[in-house]
Design a protein around this nucleic acid. Sequence first.
DNA 1: CAACTTCTACGAAAAAAATCGTAGAAAACC
DNA 2: GGTTTTCTACGATTTTTTTCGTAGAAGTTG
Lengths: 129, 129
Amino acid sequence: MAGKKYAEPTGSELEILQVLWDNGPSTVRLVNEEMNRKREVGYTTTLKLMQIMHAKGLLKRNTDSRTHIYEAVPDRESIQRNLLDNFVDNVFSGSAMQMVMQALGNHRPSVEELGRIKSLIEEMEKKQQ
Amino acid sequence: MAGKKYAEPTGSELEILQVLWDNGPSTVRLVNEEMNRKREVGYTTTLKLMQIMHAKGLLKRNTDSRTHIYEAVPDRESIQRNLLDNFVDNVFSGSAMQMVMQALGNHRPSVEELGRIKSLIEEMEKKQQ
DNA sequence: CAACTTCTACGAAAAAAATCGTAGAAAACC
DNA sequence: GGTTTTCTACGATTTTTTTCGTAGAAGTTG
């Protein structure tokens, strides 16, 4: 089941997960380099975080060669779903609708994007009949 | 200007803001009681947090009587907007669309809610012509 | 093979956030 | 008016998260 409960990743942990989701199984060095495109982080800082995440079960790793290869355990969507649920609870008092409406308002989607959402909605309306 | 000049509130700070937005200007005692409906927090913990928030400019207060009355400075929407922007950046790599689509997927809105979103979208489509 | 680089492990410090305890002033109570 | 409760102030501690430094093993290079 994809509904598994992972401890909420911290901010830095999430950054690492993103890199691994984007790049697939990777070395600490690659992850660290990717992180440094956004902000300065020391190599051993990244290493330590990844070790902690491994201990928590957020990452698995292959230690066959000296340079370990790390991989995200949870999939992106399930973490996004958890974070989104909590976010809606904490910031929008649980109202996903209000959040969606505000997101649409802030973001000013293009006509093409609006179309995509409209299709999704029509899809959902059909299913509800 | 409802611009973004407030430091991101921490988790606890946000909880306090929610209480104040919901209840209007309030005493520490009331805020603390509201917080305790969700989880156990000591009175002086809440007090201290509110004092810190006051120092940061997140709250203003009236000290005319011994029992101070605190009030949120930023309005709910502007904080929600900031938090939402950051959330989309951190969790959905900046793609508000993807976030909205997933939120709709998770939440399974009612027909009535779907209608409301559709109206909003049609509204926006018109404006873009 | 000696010098250099790259890697892991891990303790420990630093930074950020949250919690608590105590003191003393004001108010309420009886 | 003495006792008890309620309030603020604030230092200090605890907890969580992030960062860093060092040591030593394993590779690389010339």
